[in-house]
Computed example of a mutant assay.
Amino acid sequence: MRDVKDVNPKNIWNALKEGNKRYQEFAMLHQNLDAGRREELVAGQKPMAAVLACSDSRAPVEHIFDQGAGDIFVIRTAGEVLDMGTFASLEFAVDGLGVQNLIIMGHESCGAVKATKAALEGGEVPPGFQRVLIEKVAPSILNAKRKGLDTTDDFEIEHVRETVDMILDRCPVIKQRLDEGALGVVGARYRLGTGAVESIVEFGV
């Protein structure tokens, strides 16, 4: 992330937004992808940001923000659902690697959200371990319904909000870094059709 001069949560988030703008406009710099960068990273990593995103193949995180190797610590689960491994990875990114920005990014046309909506409306619950996704996403959709929201877009946005709240509630290290001003936390949603990352909630940026 070479386009960040004064490194702080606000400037890092601004750099990521600029990278996303380049991605939308097909003007990517493809930075930090050369042989020198590869050799440099053999000694270790120091990403400036971490992104928890859905595993959907249509949402390639580094490309979306026009960043290269070693710039973003990426954690991906279907529906960006949280489990102990995800919490541990988030904590490692903040406490172990010292990232200054944490972005939780959902996306348009999320299969996990659609499947959960269908299940709650009387449809079938997927078999096997896939049912865990329904169980994890369902509270977000139920909360959205209690607020009078009823579209898939609404549910995707609410799921991001709920995921951010859960992380801040259950991860003392992350909450502490945020309160100290050493970390920015953003909830966002990626639009498949336009390539835009839309901010939903922002803390410390």
Score class of each variant (00 low, 15 high):
residue 138 A to N: 05
residue 143 N to R: 11
residue 150 D to Q: 13
residue 148 G to Q: 06
residue 144 A to K: 00
residue 85 G to E: 12
residue 125 V to F: 07
residue 98 G to P: 01
residue 104 I to P: 02
residue 113 V to K: 02
residue 102 L to R: 05
residue 89 S to P: 00
residue 136 K to T: 07
residue 81 V to P: 00
residue 89 S to E: 04
residue 146 R to W: 00
residue 118 A to D: 14
residue 120 L to A: 08
residue 95 D to P: 01
residue 83 D to C: 08
residue 135 E to T: 11
residue 106 G to H: 05
residue 117 K to F: 11
residue 146 R to S: 15
residue 119 A to C: 09
residue 127 P to N: 08
residue 83 D to W: 03
residue 89 S to I: 06
residue 124 E to D: 14
residue 82 L to I: 15
residue 148 G to W: 04
residue 134 I to A: 02
residue 128 G to I: 07
residue 87 F to P: 00
residue 147 K to G: 08
residue 92 F to G: 07
residue 120 L to G: 06
residue 137 V to I: 15
residue 97 L to H: 01
residue 147 K to T: 07
residue 150 D to A: 14
residue 86 T to H: 04
residue 100 Q to Y: 03
residue 127 P to H: 09
residue 147 K to H: 09
residue 97 L to G: 04
residue 87 F to A: 14
residue 113 V to N: 01
residue 87 F to I: 14
residue 120 L to F: 07
residue 137 V to P: 06
residue 89 S to K: 03
residue 135 E to V: 09
residue 117 K to V: 11
residue 88 A to R: 10
residue 146 R to A: 15
residue 103 I to C: 05
residue 86 T to C: 11
residue 116 T to S: 10
residue 143 N to T: 11
residue 110 C to M: 10
residue 91 E to W: 05
residue 143 N to V: 10
residue 132 V to S: 10
residue 111 G to L: 13
residue 115 A to L: 04
residue 105 M to C: 11
residue 81 V to N: 02
residue 142 L to F: 03
residue 100 Q to A: 12
residue 149 L to N: 08
residue 107 H to I: 10
residue 145 K to T: 10
residue 150 D to S: 14
residue 107 H to M: 10
residue 111 G to D: 14
residue 121 E to G: 13
